[in-house]
């Protein structure tokens, strides 16, 4: 499903060239549960952004479902992000002036779906994540765990094949964090490919495949 070959990502910081990713090779099959661990600056977030088509590699190739996606135009990449990839962030990134339901609706609005169909989809996914009673609340009226649930609902509204989670529990207390992890794992069991970046070893170890990164390279891989 995902094939990365000789991926490099360099940043120019001042007069220094930083190798955020240094010759990364990785293959991920559909339905896998993968965690990426490593200290900060090891390149794990860069790798995740690259997988999510938010960033382009400096060199190397990225095939998604057999298609080379590195050479896609902005419009095509946006389409792939909208339809095939879901993002969950540490900071939730909910739009503060929109209600929970409207936040979940955003990807559908961007895709130009009719309102009637949108509302049915939003209602269904919020029911599934047990937040339908919160649908008219603004983000600041929700607890951290609820916010992350809304964010997950938003990430999965288009039924993407891949869910990318960047420290999804980083801003949550232990209890809500566990809830969120269980929720994500539940989605994985139902077929979604889950790729999670974390520096929390306890959470990372739950994944079937665990990648460890250091200085922009995958140092070793473990399987549970």
């Amino acid at each position: 499903m995902i094939t990365l070959k000789n991926i490099h990502r360099n940043f120019q910081v001042g007069d220094q060239l930083v190798h955020a990713l240094d010759d990364v090779n990785l293959t991920i099959s559909a339905g896998e549960y993968l965690s990426i661990m490593g200290p900060s600056g090891s390149g794990k977030s860069t790798l995740l952004n690259l997988l999510g088509l938010l960033d382009r590699p400096s060199a190397g190739s990225y095939h998604l479902n057999g298609r080379d996606v590195t050479s896609l135009s902005d419009i095509e990449q946006a389409q792939v992000r909208n339809q095939e990839i879901g993002f969950v962030f540490q900071m939730f990134h909910l739009v503060p002036r929109l209600t929970a339901a409207e936040n979940v609706e955003l990807p559908l609005i961007l895709a130009g779906i009719e309102p009637a169909q949108r509302h049915a989809q939003v209602e269904a996914v919020m029911q599934e994540l047990h937040i339908s009673d919160r649908s008219h609340h603004k983000p600041d009226q929700l607890s951290g765990g609820q916010r992350q649930r809304v964010a997950i609902a938003r990430a999965t509204i288009n039924q993407p094949k891949i869910l990318l989670a960047d420290e999804p529990t980083g801003n949550l207390d232990r209890k809500s964090g566990q809830d969120v992890i269980h929720l994500l794992e539940d989605l994985n069991r139902r077929g979604i490919t889950l790729i999670m970046v974390t520096h929390d070893a306890e959470i990372g170890q739950r994944a079937q495949r665990q990648l460890h990164m250091m200085d922009g390279a995958i140092t070793h891989e473990q399987s549970a």
């Binding site: 938010l54 902005d74 946006a78 992000r81 962030f89 900071m91 990134h93 955003l106 990807p107 961007l110």
Partner: peptide, 15 residues
């Protein structure tokens, strides 16, 4: 942040 989010959710530059 919101601009980044919109892009992540699949907003084109033109949108």
């Amino acid at each position: 942040n919101e601009i980044g989010l919109l892009r992540a959710l699949g907003a084109k530059q033109s949108q």
